[in-house]
Design a protein around this nucleic acid. Structure first.
Lengths: 247, 247
DNA sequence: AAACTGTATACTGTAGGCAGTCGACAGCAA
DNA sequence: TTGCTGTCGACTGCCTACAGTATACAGTTT
């Protein structure tokens, strides 16, 4: 029974539904945080953000709570939101958790992935290598995230993938400012990882991923040791300046 | 330099700060979900909950968003909140993630814990056994959660502990309705685990915890297979009934 | 009779506003 | 001068209100 001709016209463009304001605000503030316009420890006044983004306080509040849920800002009741200031210890712990999640993802991916999945992995990998050779850091970093996300997806465990994705985003934020992308070595490890997944060698895939993420962790700690800045974060609610310094 | 005599009077009772309304509402709704007053798939109208709890819609909205962040409800933009209806597959994946997180926690706990930590573990363990022998299911379940939480805490990795705690809460919700507490065997495994932690045997601690959590997972799947209910959840926003049926 | 269209209704998303509370500064006392 | 206390300003938490939108039902057309 054909209810409607429209149903057959395939190609569902899924028109751009005007997403909720709180989500747009969420993205906007997140962008301000990761690109450094808002520095760690800084107090985020709802009304300032609302003015800045041209919306009312309500969507800003809701966005801030979403950000708090993912660990980007700290919400002190009665005091408002502060950009989360990660300690070295916390960053290290986060990197450890990431290593754990991604190692398991790699193991499961080796068990579950098929030829199509491996092909997608190879595609991203070669894209990353090209970006590396073109000295396109942004593209290289993006490909790196994409590859890791793909591995978690291929693990077949959606819960695991979701968790890993959240953790990775935070890791990226903590990590990028101090450590440059590790470059070629990193992509060679990726290639080995894909080989292991293709060969269905779960133990090897897990081992490679563990070493890979531990390398990243080590390089982070190294960078941190060399540059033990850790600015004490002049928190405190300032009074006078009314404008939100975009630095 | 003694600034104030008060500072020396020890014993800081930390008076009960009136927590924010959104947190109370969060707890209240969560309670309604876990105790089954709100069934999976059910639509949660903000105004109904607001009336029910005697607050305005604002704190309810914020609570619902917190719940969504932890996976308790699904938030469909423009449609409102629905109690999350876990599939068997998702529950299994969640149990797998829990096994992963707790295994690592046990390993780290074996590396890091001290005598005081082990003593606390033993205390909770004996409490659990007593509850078991007194047939006090609630107390036994509570002690079980407490023990696992303690292990994650002793791992020394706060990020890991936080994640594990979230995952555990959801597991408990999925799990309790179908599977009875595994009882004595479970507590014997706990005792072995504590021995391994005390002996600083990270490999053994990890292995015991893995088996322990996998047992739980297996018993879950067994129960599910025996009772493949999976109610199709008559979702849909109903119109007529104005009252929030407490089932 | 079946399908489409119009209308009513309830609910969400957003805005604006008010009261309570926290922090900072200035004035006062020791 | 040093420490305490009162006042002021700003911001958060919450409430109320309004506009937009999705759904169900009824009416209409073929």
């Amino acid at each position: 029974m054909v209810r409607s001709e429209l149903a057959n016209s395939g190609a569902a463009p899924k028109i751009q539904r005007p997403t909720t304001l709180r989500e747009s605000v969420f993205e906007a503030i997140l962008e301000l945080i990761v690109n450094g316009s808002l520095s760690p420890g800084q107090h985020l006044a709802e009304s300032e953000l609302a003015d800045l983004l041209g919306v009312s306080r309500q969507p800003v509040r809701e966005a801030l709570q979403m950000l708090s849920g993912e660990g980007w800002v700290d919400l002190r009741p009665g005091h408002g939101a502060f950009v989360h200031a990660p300690t070295v210890e916390e960053a290290d712990q986060l990197l450890a958790v990431r290593a754990l999640l991604e190692t398991e993802s790699a193991r499961l991916a080796a068990l579950n992935s098929d030829a199509a999945g491996v092909a997608r992995l190879r595609e991203v990998c070669s894209r990353g290598l090209r970006a590396l050779e073109a000295d396109d850091v942004d593209a290289s970093v993006a490909a790196n995230s994409e590859l890791h996300a793909l591995v978690t997806e291929l693990s077949g465990n959606k819960v695991l993938a979701e968790l890993a994705s959240q953790v990775s985003r935070r890791v990226r934020w903590y990590h990028t400012p101090v450590a440059r992308q590790r470059g070629r070595a990193s992509w060679e490890e990726h290639a080995l990882l894909i080989d292991a997944i293709e060969a269905r060698d779960e133990a090897r895939a897990a081992e490679i991923m563990r070493e890979h993420t531990e390398h990243t962790r080590a390089s982070y700690l190294e960078q941190r040791a060399a540059e033990p800045v850790e600015p004490p974060a002049p928190v405190a609610r300032r009074r006078r300046p009314r404008t939100l310094s975009a630095r």
